[in-house]
């Protein structure tokens, strides 16, 4: 069983959704981002790690700021891998999902990228701008290496298309809660989101469906029926705030993750 699947199995036994965090590798610098990861992993079930890109067409202000900050600090893709490797050495069973834009992978070479992911212990990949069915080949290559390729579905995805996507998906599917870039205010009622979520779930009960976009301390409890919930921008925002106030982002971000976890436990 994949680490991702066992993480969901564990949270289901505990009758709560899995908590997925998203932070950008290298934010606010290489060392700190690793410390943040190691610290929040005590409360998060799955850690999503963003590899930064400077023209992110689906990210809102908070994640953009984090990505620009990481790039400004000189983060390179090899640093991202070394962060994952280091993290995995201390948290072997914590699943790691890398998330980013396709050009970074493309320049590295699909196979090369996937091979190194495997080597450093990446469990899953989310590629924002590589939609279905364009991602079919890439997803197959991931599967061969036992890496989860995580498909996204959104409120604009038709049921027919959804069916095909779910059929082709691996252990986990990411449902985008609303029409928005990351970090937008939740503009759809949790009830509506869960209605849609249930429709997706019906296609295949064995798939783990997580909900992301617009999830904060305020909204997380209202969605806890889901298999998993992703919080990203709220954490990136906290890092920005900490940098601004010259406080330690590790403690501040960890505190938020702790609170988030409490709200869904």
């Amino acid at each position: 069983m994949s680490l991702i699947n066992s993480a969901f199995k564990k949270t289901k036994n505990e009758k709560r959704p899995a908590l997925l965090t998203y932070t950008v590798a290298g934010d606010n610098n290489k060392k700190k981002s690793l410390e943040i990861l190691k610290s929040i992993a005590n409360y998060a079930d799955i850690c999503e790690i963003g590899f930064p890109h400077n023209t992110p067409i689906a990210d809102g202000g908070q994640i953009q700021s984090s990505a620009y900050r990481a790039l400004k600090n000189g983060i390179k893709i090899k640093d991202v891998f070394s962060i994952v490797k280091d993290f995995k050495q201390s948290k072997q069973t914590k699943p790691v999902i890398l998330m980013g834009y396709y050009n970074v992978i493309y320049q590295y070479g699909d196979n090369n990228f996937i091979n190194i992911c495997k080597k450093v212990g990446v469990d899953g990949l989310i590629v924002v701008d590589l939609p279905y069915p364009e991602n079919k080949d890439f997803a197959k290559k991931c599967k061969k290496k036992n890496i989860n390729f995580i498909q996204l579905v959104s409120p604009t995805t038709s049921l027919n298309r959804m069916k095909k996507i779910i059929k082709d998906s691996h252990d986990m599917v990411y449902y985008i809660s609303m029409l928005s870039t990351t970090g937008g205010k939740l503009k759809v009622s949790p009830k509506k989101i869960l209605e849609r979520y249930n429709k997706i779930k019906k296609f295949n009960k064995n798939k783990n469906i997580v909900i992301g976009f617009g999830i904060t301390e305020k909204t997380i409890a209202s969605l806890k029926k889901a298999d998993g919930l992703v919080v990203g921008s709220a954490l990136c925002k906290e890092i920005s705030k900490s940098v601004e106030k010259r406080q330690n982002p590790v403690t501040n971000v960890t505190n938020i993750v702790k609170k988030l976890r409490k709200k869904i436990s």
Binding site: V128, D129, E134, T156, R161, I176
Partner: peptide, 21 residues
């Protein structure tokens, strides 16, 4: 069919939300 000119230029590298529009 996938929107590529010369087999490699163009295409649709877009977030899922934009697929339908």
């Amino acid at each position: 069919k996938s929107g590529f000119w010369g087999g490699k230029f163009g295409g649709n590298f877009i977030p899922e939300t934009l697929k339908k529009p």
